[in-house]
Design a binder for these strands. Structure first.
Lengths: 210, 210
DNA sequence: AACGCAGGTATAACAGCGTCATGAAACCGT
DNA sequence: ACGGTTTCATGACGCTGTTATACCTGCGTT
């Protein structure tokens, strides 16, 4: 009766690690159960006993992607100014874009329906969302509390920041943003959703970032 | 030697229409050559003679998606205030979101790597982009010329608007935006990238839209 | 210690996929 | 009317996810 994921099962973690490597190397299209199983030294049945099938494995990969994104967020915040500075929000945005560029296959699995039949489980989606979006909300809230940003609701502003950064990143990855000087444009654009809510008289985070 | 797409070939257009129907009904995962061929009353070879393979067919579907999006844009602008009013930009945003909700499978093909091996051809991507993004740039430029909006560059502001709307739409479709009252939030958020660049003293397009 | 039962694993098969080679049929210019 | 070219349908190949079957391993009982 006990069929909870049991995420600490070392065999599960090992298989997810192998699958993550295959995903990173061969892309979402090359992620096949036979390749993962072979590279893990077993048979495809392994995936079925541990994950119930490919969707289960991809679900674990989905979580793993958000876990890595959360790590990138954490590192970005550690290298950023202390809490209350809107530059921290920009740092999160750059970390987001950097993650998409470093792990485009993970990004596609998380946001782009890259694996044909897969839709993340509701609980997985909620948990993954919370682990990364919560950090952004907290960062925004610190700015509101410090008075360096003004907005009616922290979560709403965080949502808007996320959407802007995600849209820029997603369009850039799709090659639709326009090829001329993408880097500079994105760097400048990332300042807008923050500056738009900054009370006047404060120095902006500046377009000199990135 | 003549192997240009010849987009007016009625057989091509018919097959694209059938494929579009299969895509809309069964999703990107259910889009198989055998099903398209059967529904068109032929064999899979048809796709190879007309499109050179599945990527070619999907490439045509990609263009078709942007063509439909352009139509939605056109209709939205016809029902919007005359040129120069920033509300036209909002109307385009709502049309974009409406398209994503009406044709989610097309949206996934266009922006989300929904078909495993497919990447749009460079020329297809450029043409598709121009046909829809050009409209937005033009609409923004009219606002800049009318003085109802102020920004250093029309294309840059248009890019930012697109990214914001696309991010909101994409995250909403992925179920990651947050389930509580998505509609109202999106409606309000769509006003921000416009209001942020509006010279003070002008009445905003208001959050009462949508 | 030996047995029996349960669970996990590997093998092999099945249906479906995109793709391509083969033969037949149709079309078209000469 | 004929010869050449192009197109079409059929079937096969290798791949995919999934599943049934047989084996084998390990644990609890007697």
């Amino acid at each position: 009766m006990e069929d909870e994921p049991d995420d600490d099962d070392p065999r599960r973690r090992a298989l997810v690690e192998v699958a993550a490597q295959v995903l990173a190397e061969d892309g979402p299209h090359g992620l096949s159960l036979r390749k993962v199983a072979a590279q893990a030294g077993g048979s495809t049945q392994l995936v079925y006993t541990l994950f119930g099938g490919k969707p289960g494995l991809v679900d674990a990969l989905y979580s793993e992607g958000f876990r890595r994104l959360a790590i990138a967020q954490q590192r970005a915040l550690q290298a950023a100014p202390p809490p209350g500075d809107p530059a921290r929000i920009l740092a999160l945005g750059h970390a987001y874009r950097g993650f998409a560029q470093t792990e485009p296959s993970f990004f596609s699995v998380m946001f782009g329906r890259a694996v044909p039949g897969f839709t993340p489980a509701r609980s997985t989606r909620a948990a993954s969302r919370q682990s990364t979006f919560g950090v952004l909300v907290q960062t925004v809230r610190e700015c509101l509390d410090a008075g360096t940003l003004r907005a009616p609701d922290a979560a709403d502003l965080a949502r808007l920041c996320w959407a802007t950064v995600h849209g820029l990143t997603s369009l850039e990855q799709s090659g639709l943003l326009g090829t001329d000087d993408v880097e500079a444009f994105v760097a400048a654009a990332l300042c807008v959703p923050v500056d738009a809510h900054r009370p006047p008289g404060q120095p902006g985070a500046g377009a000199a970032s990135l």
